[in-house]
Design a protein around this nucleic acid. Structure first.
Lengths: 332, 332
DNA sequence: TTGTATGCGTTATCAA
DNA sequence: TTGATAACGCATACAA
């Protein structure tokens, strides 16, 4: 900066003013400075800027297992986040979950990041602990993590409800549900919502809920298949004519097993998924599923976070739920 | 830091020495300082540190399309990178590709990052331009991007060769290849290597190479399916007894179409994939494919980069190729 | 409108 | 072994 100042025949102050496009600089001087900057290929030092502003201009994305997250189109989420952050010159740093979230804590306290977006996480009491740090935070799918929280949620309940409604509309009468683990095992919001969604959906559609038609899995394809196999064994004459799955992967496992047992999809049994993942139109039959704008999930989360960081956002308890739509393909 | 110094009754220098665990501090003084640090919950400021060292202690991961990259288990790669970086206290920042790589350039020049790992990229002349910046860089799968380069490569050629060998060993005689676009369309190293791998593989296995059995796709499931359909139409009596696919996704499309046309896998036609992606054991039949340690890809890349940044690494032209193995399942 | 001087929180140099 | 002090590069209050 000094070099630029010298070359342009001005003081460092003027250079700083130009860099920050401050108003009160004569066009002539500004031009000179810009010229000098170009000649020297000058770029302001970030650390110094950061030190002065007491801000890092970057935020973290924290996720427990990136492997797991890949399902939810992690690429899209990151893409959405970075797009929004880029608008304000912020960077995104990837923060793995460490025991006690120590790394996140330190990054926050050393001023290395200004805030964080928390993805798939081990729930309590970690979250409360972090939330109590009173740093700008945005959560994914965890509206109940703490008080006064910013959170961006997927439309899990609505989506499952819509799936059931869709099946009812097509004349299906007995609908099974292949969902995640029971809430005692996986007490996370999105899992609960999916289960509730099925109950509410049946209720609203005037369908009777058969508790013996509920299958619990660990969200893996293999266990969906196994679960469906068990269900078919228990009811050899296939007492259900439709299956709502809590995710596309579960739907894949379900369809595979149904077909392996000689049942036709959708003629004998209709199947719906959830997520609209990449392979949804490559299954056979192509999967009817619930779509929602995953990229937006990231974008909105980043938007909220920046709002908190810059103070633009007044409220401190925003809960954003994404819209969804039923994508009808051939499995229903 | 001043507060800590005051509280411990020492100077800031001493505090700094303790923080950096410098040797020459009396155990007694050190204890006092540590005590004060704990009491005040002190964490050294990163920006100041950074400013002084003229280092950011973070590196970027640049990828053209995170959507695409998700295929290669981007989660695993990021996980591998962050694990290695964490060992040295470095952070990973996500850098999207902007026109001319301006953002990366700026991040580097402002000292916001110390180096970068470049993933799926638009090739030339961008890469040369960036490489000419003479910043610490590591490339994925681009050993020819520039001179004196650090690069971590997947075992594409070896893997395809091994797939062909495996098929030959099982007695298959006429092998088709479902690969990526012709090199005129997608002139990137990994694509070329896969094609070369097939040629070399046939050669080494003593198999005759039928150029009319080469299918070009865009690596999408749908086009693999279409390509296979075209192939089957041209040769109705199915003159081939095996198909080597350049990726698992291509294998999925291939299998779907083969089965749709009434052919049995592997009885009539054996199929191999490449990547060993998550769904590989969920296809039916389960996919025989090429596995390689994706997480390592990230870890090694980060390791090389840190070597360059810290000066530990003497050589400046390392090319690391990952090992691979054939995972035999039911499709061959 | 522009220049001067000081501070941001650390580390490094030199004395003590 | 420790302390005082000057950088690091930028931004701002104040003076000119």
């Amino acid at each position: 900066m000094r070099q630029v100042a010298a070359r342009a025949g001005v003081s460092v102050f003027t250079v700083s003013a130009v860099v920050n496009s401050s108003a009160n600089v004569l066009p002539h001087t500004r031009a000179q400075v810009l010229e000098a900057m170009r000649e020297l290929d000058y770029q302001p030092n970030h650390a110094a800027r950061s030190l002065n502003h007491a801000k890092a201009f970057s935020v973290a994305f924290v996720s427990h297992s990136f492997g797991d997250f890949a399902d939810l189109s992690m690429g899209l989420i990151l893409s959405g986040i970075t797009e929004r952050l880029g608008l304000d010159g912020y960077h995104l740093v990837i923060q793995p979950v460490t025991p006690g979230l120590e790394d996140l804590r330190r990054a926050l306290m050393t001023g290395r990041i200004d805030g964080a977006i928390l993805g798939a996480m081990p729930p309590y009491p970690l979250l409360e602990q972090v939330a109590s740090l009173a740093y700008p935070l945005v959560f994914f799918d965890q509206p109940d993590a703490a008080q006064n929280i910013l959170t961006v949620c997927g439309p899990y309940r609505k989506g499952i409800v819509a799936a059931v409604a869709h099946l009812a509309q097509r004349g299906r009468k007995k609908v099974a549900f292949v969902g995640g683990p029971p809430e005692t095992e996986l007490n996370v919001w999105h899992n609960l919502e999916r289960h509730v969604g099925f109950r509410v959906g049946c209720d609203e559609a005037g369908l009777k809920l058969h508790s013996e038609l509920l299958v619990h899995t660990d969200y893996s394809i293999e266990n969906a298949r196994l679960g469906m196999r068990g269900l078919l064994e228990r009811f050899e004459d296939s007492p259900f004519d439709a299956v709502v799955c809590a995710s596309d992967r579960l739907a894949v496992g379900t369809i595979i097993e149904l077909q392996a047992q000689g049942l036709r999809v959708p003629e004998d049994v209709a199947v719906t998924g959830f997520d609209d993942f990449e392979y949804a139109h490559c299954t056979h039959p192509a999967l009817t599923t619930i779509h929602f704008p995953v990229r937006d999930l990231g974008f909105q989360a980043a938007d909220l976070l920046l709002g908190r960081i810059t103070g633009t956002l007044e409220r401190d308890d925003v809960r954003l739920e994404l819209p969804m739509e039923v994508v009808v393909r051939s499995s229903t």
